[in-house]
Design a binder for these strands. Structure first.
Lengths: 336, 336
DNA sequence: CTTGGCACTCGGGAACACAGAGTGCCAGAC
DNA sequence: GTCTGGCACTCTGTGTTCCCGAGTGCCAAG
């Protein structure tokens, strides 16, 4: 259906268009990619590619531009992910290694990725759901007020102030803390509700009202954070490119929900996901592509990160950067 | 020097230009603002205003546009801050009241402000320096590893993992915690270094290495966070307006340091600060203005917030919104 | 000091022509 | 059958010219 040479032509069209941002014509193409055939031949191939929907011309008698379908074929079969240079790797490593806490890791990651790809980077905070409880702390603040602190194995910390129904002495709090930790330590967050379900009945009568209050806040914390936090950086990189609807893109970026969907559900393993133009789920973002990957410590995916840029992006390089950053941030999280 | 009518003309020029975004001519102005004089008179006044540098014409024989100096005079003497409507106030109140923790307060605030003003909103996290220690918590994580959690009276929580030089039993940790809290409770963060200075010597010999480690991490935490965190929202509101250098503005927004300087140093009390065009300290932001205010619980200013928009903005409305939001967020923080 | 009149200026849009890049197709060569 | 060179055709983008209208500055009179 598409012979070797036609594929080569498609590859050349994509590469040239990406680098020049102008429709590419048969002549220039034949010259620059020494395909060993004449422009006329290239024209014929192009006609076929256009008929099949891989490329298109903005207007009659202009050069050709890849369609989303064309980019898709390019990404799937014609390109090879380009690994980063050694210098870049080392730079990433040292930059990420300097992070002092989870917030810092995420902030550094998103900036790094934006700078590396010269596009908009998006990073999701490690999911609470997949992580486990490392510690629960109850800190008395006042007579009838405590702070509940939940620390997860990914270094994330959630805290809430809880107003208690009764005055509770410190040693009762200490006891409750001990019980909670004994019960929850190492427990995966999505199993917490089941785990604490019967806890209530196992407590002495007088602790129950307090325990109920605390537990309900704890559960609420988990539910609230189910919609995960996402940050982005590098919006300035959009400014150069007028081909995308700037306003729509910026709006999408500020909608956590949209961003979530863009990064996509956890895919199998840590494979790269590429969403090209109209493939992605938000109408304001046709004209843009997303390259995303999962990251995590070890083999369980904690969350996702990626970049968003014009459909006309350098996929091999971008994919290389995203993959590399995802790996490194995984390592960092595992180590801390 | 400038009589009543000339000031009225300047006011009219600013108002018309802000609402139409087009240079305003003498005729249209005389009509729309029923000044009771003819266009020719207005022209004479305009000539004077131009000579004094309050307005300018983009090219010979076009209407007039306010200069930065013109806006400055307008803001200082010709305009009155426009209070929000009752409905808006109630909306703010209920929206902010729904916040569950400090992060949430800040996020909601910045979004609210962006939506209210239809511009880019910027909010600085409450300063650690001005707040006081509410509680220090040491949570054993492993044999030689603990987590240090610092809770401030503004609801902010900082945490760090500390690797200890020795194995330390839990009751020694508990003792250290008690000592630390006794010593630091209610202490202002900027006084913490002095306060803990002699602590080391008051401890039993065997605790000293551990205490030293913990204290150094604690102090480091305070220093690290001296450059405060700042968030922004509403970048999409910039997209409509091509008069500003979009790229420069977006770049500035992603530079914490620049943002800090934009919001300005704490001014006297909670007064509004307005920086117009070239008045502000970053060259990429000529063409934009900043309206900022401090906010805090009670009378001490904890941090600042504001909006950034084109010089050509509706100052009275924007200032009203910023002032109102600053007040409400102050209340919320005081109450929690 | 204000006003109406008048000549002048300049930006922006419409109409137009033109060069250049690129295409499609066809007939001939390999 | 596939490739190639040639040729006529079709666009877009750019530069030019022209003209309209909004707006100005100045002046002389009220």
């Amino acid at each position: 259906m598409l012979d070797e040479r036609k594929l080569a032509v498609l590859r050349a069209v994509v590469e040239d268009y990406v680098s020049t941002n102008e429709p590419v014509g048969s002549k220039a193409l034949a010259e620059r990619h020494n395909l060993g055939v004449s422009p006329a031949t290239v024209r014929n191939d192009m006609a076929v590619l256009e008929e099949q929907g891989y490329i298109t011309q903005p207007h009659t008698s202009a050069g050709r531009v890849p369609t989303d379908k064309g980019y898709r074929l390019f990404v799937d079969r014609l390109s090879q992910i380009k690994p980063l240079s050694g210098a870049e790797r080392r730079a990433i490593e040292t930059f990420l290694a300097g992070a002092v806490d989870l917030d810092d890791v995420v902030t550094r990651t998103v900036r790094l990725l934006a700078q590396l790809t010269r596009q908009v980077a998006v990073v999701q905070y490690p999911s609470l759901i997949r992580s486990t409880v490392r510690h629960v702390e109850l800190v008395p603040l006042a007579e009838r007020r405590i702070m509940l602190v939940l620390i997860t194995n990914t270094g994330r910390v959630e805290q809430r102030v809880v107003d208690l129904p009764d005055v509770v002495e410190d040693d009762r709090i200490a006891h409750l803390r001990a019980v909670l930790n004994a019960c929850l330590d190492g427990c995966r967050l999505n199993r917490v509700p089941e785990t604490v379900a019967d806890l209530h009945d196992r407590l002495p009568e007088e602790d129950r009202p307090v325990a109920t209050t605390i537990l309900s806040v704890l559960l609420e914390t988990l539910v609230d954070r189910h919609d995960e936090k996402i940050v982005f950086a590098g919006a300035a990189n959009l400014a150069g490119d007028f081909s995308v609807g700037l306003r729509e893109v910026l709006e999408a970026l500020e909608e956590q929900v949209v961003l979530m969907r863009l990064l996509g559900e956890a895919s199998d393993s840590a494979a790269l996901t590429v969403r090209i133009g109209s493939e992605n789920p938000y109408s304001g973002l046709h004209g843009t592509s997303i390259v995303a990957a999962g990251y995590g410590s070890g083999d369980n995916e904690l969350a996702r990160l990626g970049v968003l840029g014009p459909t006309r992006m350098d996929y091999p390089v971008t994919m290389g950067a995203v993959r590399a950053v995802a790996r490194y941030v995984g390592q960092i999280l595992a180590g801390s």
